[in-house]
């Protein structure tokens, strides 16, 4: 099955008020991590989605699209990852999380690091 690499065109990323230098620099950035590798509390911007038609549809309907800012709320070695995106929480299974390429915006927030 066809696997797409969806990255934000520069214009779309400028539209976001991302208060960070060098995070939204597009595909292939050295700082790119799959979503499930981010520790809890990390804020990140979605750089790209690598997946088939269905994953693209599902992820974009829930607002996980290139250029979106998110914060990891809970992440452990197994089970879905909980992220805050567009003011609500979305649980992302590990299979889906692997398709979301992100660029972390700095270190995890102190407040959120208390999450076990």
């Amino acid at each position: 099955m066809k696997r797409f690499h969806w990255t934000a065109p520069p214009a779309a990323q400028e539209g976001h008020a991302i208060e960070d230098e060098g995070a939204g620099s597009g595909a292939g950035s050295a700082a790119s991590h799959p979503l499930h590798e981010l520790p809890p509390g990390t804020q990140a911007v979605v750089q790209g989605i690598d997946g088939g038609y269905r994953s693209l549809d599902r992820l974009s309907a829930l607002g996980l699209v290139p250029g979106t800012c998110l914060q990891v709320v809970r992440s452990s070695r197994r089970g879905p990852i909980l992220v805050q995106v567009h003011n609500t929480r979305v649980a992302v299974g590990r299979g889906q999380a692997d398709k979301v390429r992100t660029a972390p915006l700095g270190e995890p927030q102190a407040e959120e690091r208390r999450w076990p």
């Binding site: 066809k2 797409f4 969806w6 934000a8 214009a11 539209g15 693209l56 974009s60 699209v65």
Partner: peptide
């Protein structure tokens, strides 16, 4: 034209962004 799907999705996301920018204010973080 497989890659056109990215453009379709992108157009939707841009549309959403342009409307949010016109109508939503976020003075402070929740």
């Amino acid at each position: 034209h497989e890659e056109v799907v990215l453009d379709i999705l992108g157009a939707r996301c841009d549309w959403v962004q342009s409307i949010v920018q016109a109508a939503v204010e976020r003075p402070r973080a929740g």
